[in-house]
Design a protein around this nucleic acid. Structure first.
Lengths: 231, 231
DNA sequence: GAAACTTAATCGTCATACTTTTGCTGCCCG
DNA sequence: CGGGCAGCAAAAGTATGACGATTAAGTTTC
């Protein structure tokens, strides 16, 4: 998942700093300065900056340097950018955006899955729904989280749309963050578990409308909880 | 928009080749070979490969080289990846995925916009809807396309969600492609124009439900047309 | 035949030199 | 006094040679 090597270290430092606003928009980074600051060679600095440039977080110009661009230019779907924003000062805004995105995408994915999922996909979803019920009853939050993530990823994957599928990891990051920051009840709500079950059953039965409706209820609920917590 | 310099030239060659499957999954690219093929230095090759790696289209390992990864690993939301796929053999699949994504996202964006858009946003939408009506009546496809793109981008932007807003350019690419490949009627359908108007009016009036419904009709219509054409 | 060792291929990093672009300064002329 | 033009210099962009680190694959040894 991570970028490797020394450029990765630079990136792991610069990325979050830019994402959090610690390095404000308009700041100019000069290669020589970065070489000195991180005690690495030109090669390494250039590669790191190139990657930031490909994410449109900075723009390099000769005789000037690399200028930090505003959020509106960033590749906000890049998993690294999302992670960096989630980790820093922009966390609340990023969670809200992701919440809305989930409300839009996950119900659509559930509907698609009900129509096109393979038998294996349906079996997996069904079994994950069971696991979810079990771990919820046992109040095993660790396992519950793991299965919750697996469930949502599975639905997104079963949609057969690779763009939806790609959001699986991101949704995972959101759910993880929610648990880590105690935004979850200590015992997962019973109705939420039932809804997951409902999604799985509807997808298995090929009932797109029910699947979509149940999933929408889930993600809308999550969004409301989020809004309530962030105030 | 483009990556600059020599690495950009490499990228403009390798990216589409990988995206189209011309360089198949599992192929190993060696740095030295690329240096020779493009007659550039290691510096340039390394930067280009690093960028491909940050898009997760390849994975570099010592003593092996850079291996081309399968589509499932790619950063399919990266604008460059989308463009490359749209340009090549994967075009149909990419259009379908984007179609579904639009169906999910744009209605949600319209609803959000109706709730949170600024007065300027509302004015702009209203005026774009008018332009759309005019250019449609004049059968001026060029201008119509331009305004259509501007309209959808404006809605996405007015949603206040930077992730939605980020999809504006991508939607633009889809609409452009549709016109370029003669998937559009020579005279934009009257009802489609009316629906755009309806979206604008609903957003101006703060009527989220109507805005969402009208937008959903638009993008569903587009998806149906697309499915019909791709067969 | 398996485990330990050696080898060589290739990426990763560094240091340095050269090239190209471009913002800026200051001169000259109107 | 102001505007344009030329030259300068700063910084990114590119090239190259050397070295280090990793690791797949072959080779030896028990």
């Amino acid at each position: 998942m991570e970028i490797q090597g020394l450029p990765g270290r630079l990136l792991a430092d610069l990325g979050p700093a830019i994402a959090s606003g610690e390095i404000p928009v308009g700041t100019v980074l000069r290669a020589e300065e970065l070489e000195a600051r991180y005690a690495v060679s030109r090669t390494v600095v250039r590669e790191a900056v190139r990657i930031l440039e490909s994410m449109r977080m900075v723009e390099s110009r000769r005789r000037v340097g690399s200028t930090v661009l505003p959020l509106s230019a960033w590749d906000v779907f890049d998993p690294l950018v999302i992670r960096w924003r989630l980790a820093g000062a922009d966390r609340a805004a990023q969670l809200r955006s992701l919440g809305s995105l989930r409300v839009a995408v996950e119900p659509a994915a559930a509907a698609l899955a009900a129509r096109t999922a393979s038998d294996d996909d349906r079996r997996e979803l069904s079994s994950l729904a069971v696991e979810l019920t079990v771990t919820a009853r046992a109040a095993d939050l660790q396992s519950f989280l793991r299965h919750d993530i697996a469930f949502h990823s599975a639905v997104l994957r079963a949609s057969g749309n690779e763009m939806f599928a790609h959001l699986g990891d991101t949704v995972g990051a959101v759910l993880t963050g929610r648990t880590e920051h105690d935004l979850m009840p200590h015992q997962p709500a019973d109705y939420a578990v039932r809804l997951h079950r409902e999604v799985a059953d509807a997808i298995c039965a090929g009932d797109a409308e029910s699947a979509e409706r149940a999933m929408r209820t889930i993600v809308l609920g999550a969004l409301e909880e989020l809004d309530a917590t962030l105030d």
